[in-house]
Every structure is written in structure tokens, then in C-alpha cells.
Amino acid sequence: ECDPAFRNCSFDGADLAGFYAAELEFEECSLKGCDLSDLSCESLRISSSNLEHAIFESADILQSEFVKCVGGSANFQNAKMNFARIIGSDLSSSIFNWANLSGADLSGSRLMGIDFTQTNIDSTRLDGANLGLCSLRLKDFKKRRFVGVNFSEADITGCDFSLCEFEDCHLEGAVISPETTFNNADLRGATFVGSELCVARLQGAVITSNQASSMLFDRYGIVVAGNLDA
């Protein structure tokens, strides 16, 4: 028997709750409002498809793939998505409460406005991901390397970025608290315009001279100028 594979199909509003398949593939399909809650699938692959308002609540879809999908306001609450690959997709404003994304690859995806506070995102790969306006409160990111990640206006209250390295990252307007930790982190590849980096824990952190000047101005109103000519 062949496992289901669908291309250029519409499942808008379909009720597939509780569906089981060893393998399931959707390519260039529309799944808007489709109910896939409690889906159990050992190999789920969805590419170039529309997932707007689709429901994957409590789905068991470990190692699933979502590639180049659009899925604003999809519901992944309580879904098991360990080691999933969400690549180049736009799932902004989706729900991931109590979902397990540990070990997932979120590279190049637009995930704006998502509350990840109750989501397991341990060991996720975030290269090129847009996490603007997300809530990441109290997350532990120790010893991670971030490349091209956008944290603009994200809530990183109490996050631990100790020993992290940032390359071409944006934290403009990020919400930073005294409990946010950047101890021994390399921040030279990050921009913090409009965020109060100076209130965070920064023991041993490496920053550029421009970043240091900006922090002194934001904190104390001190302007760092060049040396006067003799």
C-alpha cells in the first residue's frame, strides 16, 4: 500500500482530526482551517502549502517537515515536533503553547509575534529566523551561536545568553531586564538600538567601541569623543 501523497489539492476546512498515517505528504496544497488535531504521523512532509488557521493541536509529528509554507495563526498547541524542520516558512502569530520543538531547525522562517514562553525550544537551530515581537521570556540559550537572527522588539526578559556568539543579529527595541544575562557573550555582531542593553548582566561580555559608546550615552548621557589634538 502507498502512503498518501497530495499535490495541488485543497483541504480547506476539512476535518482530519485523529488521522493516522506512517507517511503523509502535501505539496502546493491549501490546508486553510483544516483540522489535523491529534494527527499521528511518523513522516509528515508539507511544502509550499497554505496552513493559515490550520489546527495541529496535540499532533504527534516528530521530525516533520514544513518547507516554504505560509501558515499565519496556525495552531500547534501541545504538538510533539521534536527535530522538526520548519524551513523558509511564515508561521507568524501561530500558537505553540506547550509544544515541543526541541532540536528543531527553524532556519530562515518568519515566526513573528509568537509566544514561546511555554514552548520547549531547547537546541533549536535559528539561523536567519525572524523572531521579531516574540515572547522568549526566561529561555536558556547558553553557548549558542546565532547567525542572522532577528530578535527585534522580542521580549527576552530573564533569558540567559551566557557564552553566546552573535553574528549579523538584530535586537533593536528588544525588551531586556536586569535578569537578562549576556555574561561572557560575544555581542560584536549584534545591534541593540533602542534596547536597554546596559541593564542586563554583562560580566565578561565582548562589545565594540561603538556599542560601548552607545551604552554610555543611553545609561549616563556621556558622549564619547575622539582625543583633542595636542
Rank of each mutant, 00 (worst) to 15 (best):
29 C>L: 11
105 D>W: 01
59 A>K: 05
75 N>D: 15
121 I>W: 01
42 E>D: 15
27 E>G: 04
78 N>S: 14
20 Y>P: 03
19 F>P: 01
118 Q>F: 10
74 A>S: 15
94 S>A: 14
40 S>V: 10
39 L>V: 10
106 L>F: 01
83 F>L: 11
109 S>C: 06
76 F>W: 01
129 A>V: 06
72 G>A: 00
53 H>D: 09
81 M>F: 02
42 E>N: 12
86 I>W: 04
42 E>H: 08
27 E>C: 04
77 Q>A: 13
92 S>A: 14
96 F>N: 07
65 E>S: 14
77 Q>G: 07
123 S>R: 05
39 L>G: 06
84 A>P: 08
20 Y>S: 13
92 S>K: 08
47 S>V: 03
137 R>L: 07
55 I>D: 15
69 C>S: 03
99 A>Y: 00
34 C>H: 07
103 G>N: 13
80 K>T: 11
118 Q>C: 07
135 S>L: 03
45 R>F: 08
103 G>Q: 12
59 A>G: 05
78 N>C: 08
124 T>S: 10
122 D>V: 00
119 T>N: 08
105 D>I: 11
105 D>Q: 10
115 D>C: 04
78 N>R: 09
105 D>F: 05
23 E>I: 03
44 L>A: 11
95 I>T: 04
138 L>F: 08
94 S>N: 03
131 L>T: 05
51 L>I: 05
51 L>G: 06
64 S>D: 09
99 A>L: 03
42 E>V: 02
78 N>F: 10
60 D>Y: 08
114 I>W: 04
95 I>F: 10
60 D>H: 12
103 G>R: 09
42 E>M: 09
101 L>V: 11
45 R>N: 13
77 Q>S: 11
50 N>Y: 09
35 D>T: 08
99 A>W: 04
31 L>M: 15
120 N>K: 11
109 S>H: 02
123 S>M: 06
41 C>S: 14
100 N>Q: 06
49 S>Y: 10
18 G>A: 06
97 N>I: 02
104 A>T: 09
